[in-house]
Simulated assay, not measured.
Amino acid sequence: MSLALLMVGCAGHSLVPEEQARAIGTRERTLALHANAIHEAIRQSGNLGALAFLDARDGHLVVLPGNSPTDAWARYSTSPPESSPPGRVSVPVVVSFVYRADVPKAPETVTHVFLEQQQALGTSLSALDTEQRELSSSIAGTRQEMQQSIVAIKRETQQSIAAAKQETQQSIAVAREDAQRALNSLAEDLGAARKFMLQTAQLGWLNQELNVENASGIRKAAKASEQLASDTARLADTMRKLSDSLASQLKELAHRLDSISSKVSNVK
């Protein structure tokens, strides 16, 4: 039925030259004779349809199963020679894609050039896809290497920070011990200075006391000296008075002695 629809469609196409239309009609009528074989091959393949044509060299039937014209051609082009139809076929300029009997679609007419172009496009797309996968794999590898490098750098940084932190803590501990020793030494120096200042203050107080006592002693000595001078003056005055009194008494005594001596002389 599908082949019959193809024959009707091609016969009514006004844009096809008459000679080419006759050739297409002849080709389709010839394919119609192999309709059962074509549909059986499609059924056995389990695909949606197949490219069907007669070999351009010897005219034998060639059926290439696939889900679309390009899919069928790609399967044929990429399959090893031993799995393809006997040998490599000679493909005519125009071929037909016949759908499975249960698919309500008319057969499609495609050119060999179109199939080759689609195959080249598919190959290019496949190559691009391969390159994309390789690029993605390379990017993934680079990303993994970067992540590993970042992890390594982070680990080294953490180790460096830990080492620096430990060194800093040790330096702080040493500096703290030095500062504590300096504070202890300063405290001792301050204690010694406080003791010295206290002793100096005590000496100053004692010196002041001594100065006060010395001043008092000097005042007492001055007062005693004044008293001594006064007593000396009084003693000198007393001595003078006593001397004068004694001289007077001696003079009087001498006068008396002279008087007595005269009286004694007179008595003789």
Rank of each mutant, 00 (worst) to 15 (best):
A74R: 13
A52G: 03
L135P: 01
S79L: 02
E116F: 06
L51K: 03
E40S: 14
P85S: 08
Q147A: 15
D102N: 05
P85G: 05
E40R: 11
F114I: 11
S90Q: 14
G122D: 04
Q44I: 12
G141C: 11
L54F: 06
V62A: 03
N47E: 13
N67W: 07
F114V: 09
F97G: 04
L125D: 12
E145F: 11
P107C: 08
A101W: 13
Y99A: 02
P86Y: 05
G59E: 02
V91R: 02
P104E: 10
Q118A: 07
E116C: 09
V98N: 01
S124A: 13
E82H: 10
R100H: 11
H112I: 09
T142Q: 12
L54Q: 03
I42H: 02
D129P: 02
R88C: 06
P104L: 15
H39K: 11
A74P: 04
F114H: 02
V89R: 07
E145M: 07
V89F: 02
E131R: 05
E145T: 15
K105T: 03
H39M: 14
Y99N: 08
S96D: 09
A52Q: 00
P86Q: 12
R133C: 10
G59N: 10
Q118G: 08
T109Q: 15
A50P: 00
A52K: 01
